[in-house]
Write a protein that binds this DNA or RNA. Structure first.
Lengths: 293, 293
DNA sequence: TCGAAACGTTAGAAATGCTATCAAATGGAT
DNA sequence: ATCCATTTGATAGCATTTCTAACGTTTCGA
C-alpha cells in the first residue's frame, strides 16, 4: 500500500522519543537503551529519508523544520498504536477468569467457596465450566483447569489442591441391612456415574471383582448425580470431601473407602498469567485441603 | 510514556498487513517477505499480548474480536506514520536544487543556460548561490557544487564539466600600444580580483615574476568583476569560456593564456540523490564543453 | 583550566528477522 | 477417491539489525 516504503519502524520510534524529550539521553532512558543506540537509529532514519531531522546546538539538540513536521505525525501514529494495544490489555484484564473442572468438584467443593472469593476480589468475575470432558487450556480461553488423578499415577511435581479419600456411598434406604463387607456385593446395587465415564466398572476391577452379570448403571450428567445419591437412586464413587456433611448427618452411608486416593490439582498455561488469574490461583491454593477418614 | 511497553513494532506491522489482506501470503508479498516471516511475527505479537489475534479457518484465516479491534487502531497508527513520511518526501521533492559555484562561473556560463533547463524541466526550480567561498555540501542544503581546480593538481577520477584555457584579459583602452609580451609588464596594470582571493599574485608567481613594487589590486565581489573588465577598470585572470564573445568582438583583449589550464567539475554528496538533483546533473553534463585557443 | 553534561563514533556482541524447507490441512478438480 | 493446488505451521541456520561498552568531541560553567 502506501507504507510499503516506511523507514525502519524502530528508527521512527527512536526519533519520536527524541522529539518528545528533546534529548537523546532521556529518549534513550525512555526506550530502555543507551544514548548510542538512539543516536544510531536517528542517523538511520535521516539516511533513509535523506533529510536532516535533528541538529546539535551546543550541549543540546534541536529539531529541524522537517524533523518537527515528522514528529507531529509520529506522535499521532504511535499514540494510535498504543491505544490499540492498551484497549486489548484492558479487555484482557476485564475478561472473566475461566475455570474448568468436573461437575462434582464444582458443585460440592468450589461453588460453596465462590462467595468468599467474590468478597475478597470484587473486581474479578469467575466463570466456571463444570464438565466431565477434559477441556484444553487455551490462550484467551480457559485459564485454569482442575484435574483429577488417583494414587495409582503419582506425580511428585504436582501441587495438590484437594487430596481426599475416595469412597463409595449410598442412601441408607438403598442399603438396608445387607452385608456389604465384600466389594463383590456392590455388583447388584444400582450405580450412578457421569455420562461417558466408567467409574463403576473401574472401581470393581480395582477391587478384583469380575462381574458375572451386567451392572445396573445409570449414566447421568454429573450435576445430577450428587442429588440422586442423596435421594437414594443409587450408589456412586466419589471424594469424601464432597459428602462430609451428608456422612456426618447420616444422610448417606459410606460403603468402602480408599485412603487419600484422589488428588485434585491445578493446570494452567505455562508463561505469564493475567493478574486476575494469579489472584484466583492464590485463593484456590489458600483453600487447599486434605480430607481423610 | 504510555507506549513504553509497545510490542515489537515489526510484529504490529506484520499483523496489520495480515488484517488488511486477510491472508498471510498476500500480507507477506505486501511486506516483501515470505509468509513464514509474517507467520512468525504474528506469533510474536500474540505471545506479547497474550491474546489470540488470528484463527485458522480452513484454508484461510479470520481475525478474532481482539484482532479486529487491534487492527483498527493499527491501521490508523500506521497511516499516520506513513503520512508523516510522505509529507517529508513531498517537501523533499519540491525543494529547489541548490547549486553553489563561483560568481564568474554563474554569471558567464550557467546563467545563460538556465533558461534551457527550465524549459526542459518546468517542475524543478534551481537555486544558484554564486560565492567565492567553498560551501560544503549538506544533506538538506546545497545539492551540487561546481568546483575549480587547475592543471597543477590533476585528478583523473574527476569528470570534467568545463575545461577551458585560462587567460588574462583587459580592455583595449587599458592596454594601448604597450608591449605586453613579457608577464612582468602586467605588474603595473590594475588587477581586479574576487574578494578574499589572491589570483593576481598567484598568476605572477606562476610566471616567475616577483613584483618589486606593490600591485594595484582592486578587490570586489565576483559578480562585478566581469563588467568592470569590460568597462576597462582593470585586467583579470579568468576562463576563456567566460569571454568568448567579448574576445571575438574585440571588446576585450587577451594578454596571456594557459592552454586548458582550468577545470570546473561537479561535487555532490555521496549516496542516492533526489530525482530532481539527478536530472539537473544530467543536464549539466550534457552541456559540458572544452574551450581552447 | 578543569570537570560535568551532552552528543558522536565504533567494534563486536546480542537479538531479531528472514529464508528455505518440509509438513499438515483444506477444498476443488478429475 | 485421489490428486493437486493453495494456504498456513514449524524450524534450523543464516543474515541483518540493534545494542552496548568504551572512548572521543564539544560545550558550558565554575
Amino acid at each position: 500500500m502506501d507504507w510499503l516504503k516506511l523507514p525502519p519502524l524502530n528508527s521512527l520510534r527512536a526519533f519520536s522519543a527524541v522529539a518528545e524529550t528533546g534529548n537523546y539521553t532521556l529518549a534513550a532512558r525512555q526506550l530502555s537503551v543507551t544514548h548510542a543506540a538512539v543516536s544510531q537509529q536517528v542517523k538511520i532514519l535521516e539516511a533513509h529519508l535523506q533529510v536532516s531531522l535533528v541538529v546539535r546546538s551546543g550541549r543540546s539538540i534541536q529539531l529541524t523544520d522537517e524533523g518537527a513536521s515528522l514528529a507531529g505525525d509520529l506522535e499521532i501514529g504511535f499514540a494510535a498504536l498504543g491505544r490499540g494495544v492498551e484497549r486489548l490489555n484492558q479487555l484482557q484484564a476485564e475478561r472473566p477468569v475461566q475455570i474448568t473442572m468436573s461437575p462434582a468438584f464444582a458443585a460440592e467443593w468450589l461453588m460453596p467457596k465462590v462467595k468468599d472469593f467474590q468478597q475478597k476480589h470484587p473486581g474479578i468475575t469467575l466463570m466456571l465450566s463444570p464438565t466431565a470432558d477434559v477441556v484444553e487450556l487455551k490462550q484467551g480461553g480457559v485459564d485454569i483447569a482442575v484435574r483429577y488423578r488417583d494414587k495409582r499415577r503419582p506425580d511428585s511435581s504436582i501441587k495438590p489442591l484437594l487430596v481426599s479419600d475416595m469412597i463409595v456411598i449410598g442412601h441408607p434406604s438403598l442399603i438396608g441391612d445387607q452385608d456389604l463387607s465384600n466389594p463383590a456385593a456392590l455388583v447388584d446395587l444400582p450405580w450412578l456415574q457421569e455420562l461417558g465415564t466408567n467409574e463403576a466398572a473401574e472401581w470393581l476391577t480395582l477391587h478384583g471383582v469380575v462381574p458375572d452379570r451386567p451392572l445396573k448403571v445409570h449414566q447421568m450428567p454429573g450435576n445430577l448425580i450428587m442429588d440422586a445419591v442423596r435421594r437414594g437412586d443409587g450408589i456412586t464413587f466419589t471424594a469424601r470431601a464432597f459428602f462430609r456433611n451428608d456422612l456426618k448427618s447420616g444422610r448417606v452411608i459410606e460403603l468402602f473407602s480408599e485412603q487419600e486416593f484422589g488428588l485434585y490439582y491445578i493446570e494452567t498455561l505455562s508463561g505469564p498469567l493475567r493478574p486476575a488469574v494469579r489472584s484466583c490461583l492464590h485463593w484456590l491454593y489458600s483453600n487447599a485441603e486434605r480430607v481423610s477418614i
